[in-house]
Each structure stands twice: as C-alpha cells, then as structure tokens.
C-alpha cells in the first residue's frame, strides 16, 4: 500500500519493475527519476514500448509501440486504416474482422505486438486497385448492408467463409457468418451475396 501522503504513481511502479528486466542502459533509479520528473518521456517510452513489424496490405510497418494497443486500434488510430470498425471491442460483433496470415480474426482481441511478423489484410487491401473484389461487388449488387458499419467485417468474414469451405448452403453460411452482427438486419442479402460469389466459382 502507498503511504497516505505519497502521490500514487502507477507509472513509477511499472518502470521500477520493468527496468529491472529490460535491456535499457539505465538504472532503475534513473528510469524512475526520469518518469517522476517527466524529464524525458522518450526514456520512459523506451522501456514501455515494444518493437514489432507487421505487413499490412502489402506494406511492412516496423514500429515500437505500447503493447496494450490492439491490432484494431493500431489500424484505426495509428495507421488511419479506419475501414476496420470497432463495434464492441470484446470480440462479440465481428465488425473488426481482418485476415491475419489469411485467417479471419477479430482484430480487437489480439494485441498488435502479438502479430509481429504476420501479414494482415484489411478491407482497404481487398480490392485489386480500383477493381472491386467479387465479394464487394456482390454486396453492392445484393444490397448486403444499410448503414455500412458492419460491412467491412462482413465482407472480410464472407471471403474467409468461402475460402474455408463453409459456404455450401444457406444454413452453413448463416452458421459460419454468425460472428458478424448486422444490426440493420441485412442478413438475407448478405447470404445472397455470399452464395452468388460461391456459385461464381472464382478463386477468391
């Protein structure tokens, strides 16, 4: 417990522990002092931030980041790839669905640093230049959305659903798309779009 009159400082406690195990040319006392006096934010961040390198839509990003940043927030807030949406932040809606090494995942429930060395595809990376991906075109054709907020997640999920081989019939599509909530309720149109792409037989 902190003493009554001591000013609580969570960063101080954190740095004290961290600097003991981090390869920073700084004694724990010096690190704490730096933080206490807010003398050098960079020194503190050198301890707090973690290096990582992720390929996103074909571009490699090498960064040192706060390990608390989720992949979703990295995309939206750091890289301004806002096509990936935050709908719940707890893996309960699917709006944040992206592909990591080809697999659909909820980007809100994975730390960015856990994706070091991986390849991420977001909705911005799905189309081939100005040519829409067949799933994007099918969503427009079948009106598979209204407000559009769940749409990038639905589309990323739908592409994976076909690639996984889970789009053989309406029932299977519905089951394997249930991780993507559409509150506007365009579900039947989304299912129709997926069926059309599946029937098109193209290698997506």
């Amino acid at each position: 417990m902190e003493k009554e009159n001591a000013t609580p400082n969570p960063r101080r406690d954190f740095l004290k522990k961290s600097s003991l195990i981090t390869a920073v040319a700084l004694t724990p006392t010096a690190a704490i002092k730096a933080a206490d006096n807010q003398l050098d934010e960079r020194i503190a961040q050198a301890i707090e931030n973690v290096p990582c390198s992720i390929e996103i839509n074909g571009t490699k990003h090498t960064m040192k980041i706060d390990p608390r940043i989720t992949l979703l927030d990295l995309l939206r807030e750091r890289l301004h790839l806002t096509g990936t949406k935050k709908g719940c932040d707890y893996g309960q809606c699917g709006a944040c669905t992206v592909h990591v090494d080809g697999q659909r995942v909820n980007s809100c429930l994975t730390l960015a640093v856990m994706n070091d060395g991986k390849k991420v595809t977001t909705i911005e990376g799905l189309a081939n230049g100005s040519e829409l991906h067949p799933m994007q075109a099918a969503f427009i054709k079948h009106d598979g959305f209204q407000c559009g907020y769940c749409t990038p997640g639905q589309i990323m999920s739908a592409v994976a659903c076909i690639r996984e081989g889970h789009a053989d019939n309406e029932g299977e599509i519905r089951e394997f798309m249930s991780g993507n909530i559409c509150r506007c309720g365009a579900y039947p149109n989304i299912v129709a779009a997926i069926q059309e792409v599946k029937k098109g037989g193209k290698n997506i």
Binding site: R104, V105, N106, L109, S157, E164, G179
Partner: peptide
C-alpha cells in the same frame, strides 16, 4: 462455441 473468427484465434 463462439464464432468462426474467435475459433481461429
């Protein structure tokens, strides 16, 4: 259990 995305994680 869960969703296809979560099962992939």
């Amino acid at each position: 259990g869960a969703s296809a995305q979560l099962r992939n994680m």
